[in-house]
Amino acid sequence: MNIFRFLGDLSHLASIFILIHKIQTTRSCRGISFKTQAVYVAVFVTRYLDLFTTFVSVYNTSMKIFFIASSCYILYLMKVRFRPTNDPSIDTFRVEYLVGPCAVLALIFNYGYSVTEVLWSLSIFLESVAILPQLFMLQRTGEAETITTHYLAALGAYRALYIPNWIYRYFSEGYVDPISVTAGLVQTGLYLDFFYVYFTKVLQGQKFELPA
């Protein structure tokens, strides 16, 4: 554990709390892509299959349980509790275009041909593109509530902070995980446009609006 990874994990935690707070205080999941949230459940469940077989630390286990539980809770909020505020007609990104290629990549690039290793690899690839339905929705509507942009910024910062963590681990432990690094760079890259607008508009007190 180093400071970058820890801050990244905190940022990831913060993003989830911000999202739940947004849904509960506005009593609405408007502007949130159900497809992205559903993919996150798949990401956490496939990645943390080792929860019952591998023990790393209390921290690691608690976080895994939290990510699985909170992502399921968000689906519940969107599909049951605040269902009328969820508008599937603007959440039109085709998720199968993400899952298919990620499954192929996972079969080619993995650290061992076992069910758990291939699913772990799939979860890494899938996470890297999981935000696309959400960003696509943002692009379509052209605007977002400020709280939603804080959620996205925290979520983007999480994987961005893992990059210095990987650099640090390379020099301090000689540890390299090429699958995570490649996918993590792609994942962070997808946020660059968003970050630009977030820093130049939202943090200057303006509303998040994309140019027409």
Partner: peptide, 10 residues
């Protein structure tokens, strides 16, 4: 070598 990829990250 699976031990070098212990998946200790989240």
């Amino acid at each position: 070598d699976p031990s070098s990829h212990s998946h200790d990250e989240l």
